[in-house]
Design a binder for these strands. Structure first.
Ligand SMILES: [Mn+2]
Ligand SMILES: [Mn+2]
Ligand SMILES: [Zn+2]
Ligand SMILES: [Zn+2]
Lengths: 146, 146
DNA sequence: TAGTTTATGATATTCATTTTCAATTGTCAA
DNA sequence: TTGACAATTGAAAATGAATATCATAAACTA
């Protein structure tokens, strides 16, 4: 079963229809898997394929996709929600954000086992997920600084 | 030199005055060091001591305090900015957020050395700071679940 | 098909935050 | 002390992302 089929199932399981609008929004997100698009950016891309779509539909659909686990909502502290396709990983991957050029780099692999163990033990806190961002300078910007 | 003296210096270094309004806002934040207050919450507490203050002044002052490194801006994904006194630690501490009761618990100690080393090596990314949140269930809520 | 539910688009509304602007306060040289 | 001049403030308006409303349009069901 391919990716789109899986998403179709997730929708139908909960009694939602795969409308043209939802399909176009899904396509845009899938065509930009390496990006972290904001709602408005998604709206602009979607309108190129389906100009009649309303902004509210985009917001509604992103909310729905998030509930269904199709998409993951991100916050890069720039005052707007951003979204990426839900990767098939246990925990959300980390993001490295360049303070100079704004580039967002992904870091796969938790490497948080020690920390999570310490938290579960010392704080008696059961961890379900995490959200990790690193701020600094990307390789390109570091070279420029020399 | 005590804490308030340090903050006074930070202000004067950059040519800012310690007005009554700024002093009251600082007091409220210092009296609530264990909390993570939102701008509106700070505004409400400040008004108890200084009812004439304007909301814009609170927002302006929090922005200023953030620039000066007096205060740290937090985002707990509840649609508002939150602030806490800047701790004297190299990196920002971690926050554990309970998905049931909303409690915010602090976790001191990075325990991110391995991860940061891996990032610097594999991504050639120079890390200046990080932002780490864990979501799950706090000890109180875990007990209730039994 | 007729009736019911679901989804949509245009528009209005909400809410945190920022901006504007006139009035107030502080600074400092004469 | 006085009088510029700059910094700060409060009230009110503006902004902008996100959500709610509501009438219309599709999709499904018996
Ligand atoms: Mn990502
Ligand atoms: Mn904290
Ligand atoms: Zn960069
Ligand atoms: Zn709890």
């Amino acid at each position: 079963m391919n990716e789109v089929e899986k998403f179709k199932e997730k929708l139908k399981d909960k009694g939602y229809k795969l409308t043209t609008q939802r399909r176009v929004i899904l396509d845009v997100i899938m065509e930009n898997r390496e990006k972290h698009l904001s709602s408005e950016e998604i709206y602009d891309l979607v309108r190129q394929k389906y100009p009649e779509i309303g902004l509210a539909t985009v917001y509604r659909t992103l909310l729905l996709f998030e509930e269904l686990g199709i998409v993951y909502k991100l916050n890069f502290d720039d005052g707007r929600n951003r979204y990426e396709l839900y990767h098939n990983e246990v925990h959300q991957h980390h993001h490295l954000i360049c303070l100079k050029c704004g580039a967002v780099i992904e870091m796969e692999g938790d490497l948080l086992e020690d920390l999570e163990k310490a938290i579960e033990e010392t704080k008696d806190f059961e961890i379900l997920d995490h959200n990790v961002k690193f701020f600094g300078y990307c390789s390109k910007c570091r070279k420029k600084n020399d």
